[in-house]
Nucleic acid binder design. Structure first.
Lengths: 218, 218
DNA sequence: ATTAAAATTTAGACAAATCTAAAAATAGGT
DNA sequence: ACCTATTTTTAGATTTGTCTAAATTTTAAT
């Protein structure tokens, strides 16, 4: 399993959102910042190895084996992210790039020990669930802040966009996972929100609200 | 700097034992388990980049820049080894293989944080010195047990052979770095040694003694 | 100083992963 | 059903790191 193969499997998994559906050559090329012709080549190779289903012009989807492999890479990526934040004081906008490298280290013992060192975390620093060793997922019951009704309240549990600029913005505005949040008002004109967060009040744009996941209180 | 380039620089450094001298194509090929012709190709490439001195048929040696790069990789390798042993309970015969992968992770912040987490260790689990960030070395005043006179005593500080079989042998015989050691008798016939280690007495072959480093008591 | 052996380099090939440009297949609109 | 735009694949080239086999240079022994 080469690094490139692993990256393709990961990209296909992410594009399929964990679901079954068939992914287009173009979509994969865009996600991986490569050309469609390269994707076709790799599709053949991965099909050969039984990791994807591939029929010419019909798109690409992961086999069970491919899904297992993708999940194990995602598991490694997210555990390393937790490690970097919890043990080495990285900020959540710094971890992705390094985890992209660490996820390819081949040692089952290593990642299991890291998992134990971190006390078997269930979520990474962006709120994404960490697959278990046997590839089980625990997607949290969450929704986008932008889709919640007025007066609703809950806890920030994740981000949809985990790009450094967005994460830095959140830091600057003291918006962190685990914070309580309540929607005080919605502005019809631009769909911006007046919210209460950990005591203080602030106004956030629709763009921000549509990239923040909240777990609603029952 | 590709992974392969890094591995060549490391191999050249190790073969030169940190000294200046020129290393033969064959020696590098053997160390890296590759063919001399591949070494020639890489020598040209590294010379192009100013990392080695290379003249046809005249052997290869590291430039200052090459030495700096090699030391930074060795630094990373050894720090990761300490991390694996101290933080993840790896045994000293398990760390090399994984560190071979981890040493190529590109993030200065990462390795500096690991260094700090470990409290800036000076030696790796095999007793080899860890270069500082600016490439300084602190080789310990040590000698092979096999070269010490009868009745001499000291502390085990390193191994020359750090292969898994040798390290496992040492574990099995409860010989560990930090242990005190005293030579009770030398057998002329096979040069085996009768030694006292942490209270108990044991006999070790010349082959073992010539792979154990000891720091003599003054 | 000559020459045989050993070491090293060159030349040409290959696999992996990528690209560009051209060809082929599909999809959508009428 | 047809045509066009888009998507996808193919064909051929490129880069990196490797190899084998042949040619060249160095070395060391007589």
């Amino acid at each position: 399993m080469t690094r490139s193969e692993e990256n393709y499997l990961k990209a296909i998994f992410h594009l399929g959102n964990g679901e079954a559906g068939s992914i287009s050559t173009n979509a994969i090329a865009e996600q991986m910042e490569t050309k469609p012709s390269s994707v076709t080549d790799m599709a053949k190779k991965l099909a050969e190895k039984g990791l994807v289903h591939y029929k010419k012009y019909q798109g690409i989807s992961l086999t069970d084996a491919g899904t297992r492999t993708a999940l194990s890479i995602i598991r490694k990526h997210r555990l390393w992210e937790v490690f970097l934040v919890k043990k080495l004081d990285f900020t959540w906008d710094e971890v992705h790039e390094v985890a992209e490298q660490l996820e390819h280290i081949k040692s089952e013992k290593l990642i299991d020990k890291i998992d134990a060192l971190l006390d078997f975390p269930k979520y990474d620093p962006h709120g994404d669930p960490i697959p278990t060793k046997d590839g089980k997922f625990m997607e949290r019951d969450k929704q986008l802040l932008s889709e919640m009704p007025i007066h609703a309240q809950g806890v920030c549990v994740g981000v949809k966009d985990s790009s450094a600029p967005f994460l830095k913005f959140l830091d600057k505005n003291k918006i962190a996972l685990g914070n309580t949040i309540k929607i005080l008002d919605k502005e019809d004109f631009d769909q911006s929100l007046q919210i209460q967060m950990e005591g203080r009040e602030l106004r956030i744009s629709h763009q921000i609200a549509s990239n923040l996941y909240v777990k609603k209180n029952d």
